[in-house]
């Protein structure tokens, strides 16, 4: 069986816009040396650096229209 977890490469989906999608669980080492982890089946890693939950995506990459636009 080639489907035993860990025996196949981990898939990362890298779209042009938006977060990197990485198959979980993952451990992320941050610049200050601290480690954060997630057991989710897939994690969205922030690439725009605007996330307030960094390194996890919190959808802050989304486009914001000009202030005052009716909506």
């Amino acid at each position: 069986m080639s489907t035993v977890p860990g025996e196949r490469p981990r898939r990362i989906t890298a779209p042009r816009e938006g977060p990197l999608l990485v198959e979980g669980p993952v451990e992320v080492v941050l610049e200050d040396g601290t480690t954060v982890s997630s057991e989710r089946f897939c994690v969205a890693l922030c690439t725009c650096r605007r996330s307030r939950a960094y390194p996890w995506c919190d959808t802050s990459h989304r486009q914001h229209p000009e202030r005052g636009r009716p909506d």
């Binding site: 989906t13 999608l21 989710r40 897939c42 969205a44 939950a53 995506c57 959808t59």
Partner: peptide, 14 residues
């Protein structure tokens, strides 16, 4: 839900 749904949005759309 902030983190989970940021992932779910991507999976549901793609």
């Amino acid at each position: 839900h902030v983190e989970a749904d940021a992932v779910h949005e991507q999976i549901v759309r793609r």
